[in-house]
Amino acid sequence: MSAVAVESAGLWRAALRSPAVLVGGMLSLAIVVLAAVSLVWTPYPIDGVAIGARFAPPSWTHWLGTDHFGRDLASMIMVGARTSIAVALVAVGVGVVLGVPLGLAAAAVRGSAIDEVIMRGNDLVFAFPALVIAILITAVFGPGAVNAIIAIGIFNIPVFARLARGAALSLWTREFVMAARLAGKGRALISVEHVLPNIANTLIVQATIQFSLGILADAGLAYVGLGAQPPIPSWGRMLAEAQTMIALAPHVAIVPGLAIVLTVLGLNLLGDGLRDLFDPRLRGVRR
């Protein structure tokens, strides 16, 4: 009946039994660890040009092969993960930090002018896909990784605001919120004490999904030149550079793509698994 009937200990046990959470969690963790390790160590330096070793296929010396400058692809992927994760993570953070309070506020004063303004504002932002925001920013300020963060971050705000508002609205009609009002508590206090904890699970699941969408969007923006610029390695740029040589050295194009797929797949599996875990109604239905 109540979504929180599962205590945290039970939740951990259930998580360890869920293949989606396990596989997804391990994939996501692996990418994060690779990105973190690249801060102190990579198999090869990524700024060294070794024309002699260019287009080497995967081997024992270069696990994933080398690119057109002879740079080690495994090292590039590790460093590129850093950019992707940073962009997607900060963009999710922007969405959560700005979107959730807006959604909670709108729900707390449902039907008022403030609610109306917040929701209309959300609709307006929804009319600007992340790519269009990136185009606007780049046209005026020039390209860069910060653009990608701002563009994806702005796009995330209405996602979280709408989700938080919708979930909060259904809680505001619940009798325990009425009991809290009866106890003289104000709307802000109720939002923090009663509403937010009960929508946290939903928000966590959505954050995971927006994280994976952020990785995809970042790759797309970098690919068309609106994201991180050389010499900062990014998966999207690696793909853009590999494209012209795809007939010559397919692995240079395949490797960064696989890195994106595995990261996004891991995050999506984790998100879906967590959703099933948090919602006992769904448990056992999917499998």
Partner: peptide, 8 residues
């Protein structure tokens, strides 16, 4: 009796 209490 179910909706009257914050389950957390």
């Amino acid at each position: 009796p179910y909706g009257s209490f914050n389950p957390r």
